[in-house]
Design a protein around this nucleic acid. Structure first.
Lengths: 391, 391
DNA sequence: TGACTTTGCTCATGCTGTAGACTAATTTCG
DNA sequence: CGAAATTAGTCTACAGCATGAGCAAAGTCA
């Protein structure tokens, strides 16, 4: 039996079952395509006749198309159903050092990807808008359902306007509104960690409910918390600031005014500072080059990254103790050296820890993770739940 | 428009709207009784005719009864609807030092309450079962929908069997099964913090979604996390162990094997240890007597409780930073001296904190909080969602 | 070729909420 | 006092939806 909660305040109409089932079928197609109507009926528990009607709707709404005919050991051949590859979503990943724009289908498959070549001096929202318009023009045959934007730092509660993103080198005020106005598309914006958490829901392989925490290790540390399969936003959208929990009362000064926040001990920036303080040379090195130095055998770089790994593990221990998520997913440059530092991070996380069941892993598809996360923002916004506004 | 999530895996039938709406109406009656059908229609957004049909069902299922006639400035008088006071729930609060048993109606109103007088020497599940049977016999005219049990310590993931409750002075293994077998009733069991969190959902006044954290300060410290109005259980039901997050690497040894866990610095037991170490006399004092001593002006007791308050605030700061809940609710003996130590706790919580919006407050109805929490466990289990098994 | 299997569609049925009409009850105003 | 207005609660025709049995289509296998 379904379970209902007193927090549910919306009444249901006689069309509610169709909405629920339509969504269920669409998600099954998304995750298991190609798939026949009969298999959809078996998987969903609905009658074949009901599935046929719903599929008819989905085809009319151009969300799903009939594909090739399948083959079975016995009986009539099934007609496979697939997502309509004409429908697409734009994904914009704003990173302190680079901006990436991609085109994805509704299944999260990245079709085209482009590193925006915007000169340091002329970084602006306008340049991004121009690039978006060009990409849309290049994919005239596609019908776009929205633009997902993921960026470092925090977005405001309603995700509408200003953003606090001190590491971005261009003004991002009202980036959402300007893109929406210029393109006429739905724009969904959130920080990287939240977006990656949603990507696990929409594209991840695990079934059922998800309890997981995504930790984005970048200039700072941000986390996205998925509770019962839904994003935990908290008051004013400020949930997930584990990066600003104090781990060390005498630690370095943090931008937030405290001393010894987790991100002053385990972020990329923390590592660079520690490297400089340990006598590493020359100054002005980036985190990726720090990884290269370690790979090449630089002892100070190695010691720095080990220091960072231990501190990462300490903070993760706090998370697994406090929330006991099924999984903790790490996103960020440090994952490119996971083979080397992952075990050290995990060892520290499990040290003396009450909960040792949380699985720790780097995000799948390193480079694509943030782009798929941006796509997930659009899907999660309910863009496909309405009976198709676009032809 | 409703929003659906890909984590929803259950299909809907044509009876689903009725289930949803029936639940909605029942909850409105629970929270706003006495209330007329017309008001239910206005509040729920359903048609008056639909509400009438649903109410007819609820009356047939003996969940709701018609009450007195109301009075309005104009027009026909409404018929008020109320919860059927014949339906009841048993609430069992197992505390280290005492066991309380109560009878509640479905609205969470405690009808009868009894401190079980079980001699220290003969504390056993059997004695509790006997007491339960007697109370059921004393309320023969009531129809019981279940028994909610809240206790310190952890219950296992599926809430079925063994419990880790080192502070309880009698064996609690399979308490659930034994009570269920002896009474034939549905038994729902969970730890105090989780139960109190659910009580906020079922009996709290705030509307809409709830993001809150309940902190139970007792022998140890346990927390219940409510995310999007649902309990965050985490892997193996171990979520909420903020009490075992390390705040002080050189702190006292904790039962979990770590040093300086939050609960070694801010629990009742921590206060008692600190009191003894500060030269407080005599040994063997209880926490409530420590509060009395402070009230009477004992300087060591005062200093101890101030030390505890500061440490409580430190841990709460971690919670508000990490989760940014709308509210943080404190449960435990310390709330009886909230007028004195609450401000100190809150001041420390907000010190240098990123998120200063979380509201901090003690649980309402101090003494009744845990009993209503036990009732909430039964309601949350869906006991009323089936078309009434009991006559 | 004929028995069997599987897919996908058709259709009668029952459950549900909707919207408006209708009855009942009560106050206000002429 | 009586008509109009107002509000509560019920009744009825209707449309959306899932169900499940039945059926044709399309294949396999003996």
């Amino acid at each position: 039996m379904r379970q209902y909660f007193p927090t549910e305040r919306q009444s249901a109409s006689n069309r509610t079952p169709r909405q629920i089932n339509r969504n269920l079928i669409l998600n099954l197609v998304r995750k298991q395509q190609p798939i026949s109507r009969a298999d959809l009926a078996r998987t969903s528990g609905l009658q074949r006749s009901t599935v046929s009607l719903i599929v008819e709707d989905l085809i009319a709404d151009k969300l799903v198309v009939e594909g090739p005919t399948g083959r079975l050991p016995r009986g009539r051949r099934p007609t496979f159903l697939q997502l309509n590859s004409q429908r697409a979503v734009l994904a914009l990943d704003i990173h302190p050092e680079q901006v990436t724009l991609a085109v994805s289908d509704l299944g999260g498959k990245i079709i085209a990807q482009k590193l925006l070549d915007i000169p340091e001096s002329s970084r602006s929202v306008g340049a991004i808008v121009t690039a978006i318009k060009r990409v849309i023009a290049e994919h005239k045959q596609k019908s776009f359902d929205g633009i997902g934007v993921c960026l470092p730092g925090r977005t405001d509660p309603i995700l509408e306007q200003a953003i606090f993103a001190p590491n971005l080198h261009f003004p991002v005020r009202d980036i959402r509104g300007r893109i929406a106005k210029a393109t006429g598309l739905r724009v969904e914006m959130d920080n990287v960690a939240n977006a990656c958490a949603l990507a696990e829901v929409w594209f991840g392989e695990s079934d059922g409910m998800h309890d997981l925490v995504v930790v984005n290790v970048s200039e700072g540390i941000g986390t996205g918390i998925l509770a019962n399969g839904r994003l935990l936003r908290g008051d004013s959208g400020m949930a997930g600031e584990f990066g600003h929990v104090q781990l060390d009362r005498d630690g370095p000064l943090c931008g937030c005014g405290n001393h010894g926040c987790w991100e002053t001990l385990a972020s990329n920036r923390a590592a660079l500072r520690h490297y400089a303080e340990s006598g590493g040379s020359p100054n002005g090195v980036s985190f990726t080059s720090l990884l290269s130095l370690a790979h090449a055998g630089d002892p100070i770089a190695i010691a720095t990254l080990e220091w960072m790994s231990t501190n990462l593990g300490r903070g993760l221990r706090m998370i697994t103790t406090a929330l006991a998520p099924k999984e903790i997913v790490i996103v960020g440059d440090v994952t490119t050296a996971w083979y080397r530092f992952g075990p050290m991070i995990e060892e520290e996380m499990r040290r003396n820890s009450l909960n040792t069941n949380s699985i720790l892993r780097p995000a799948y598809d390193g480079g694509l993770a943030r782009l798929r996360a941006a796509v997930a923002l659009v899907l999660n916004s309910g863009a496909l739940q309405e009976p198709a506004s676009v032809a």
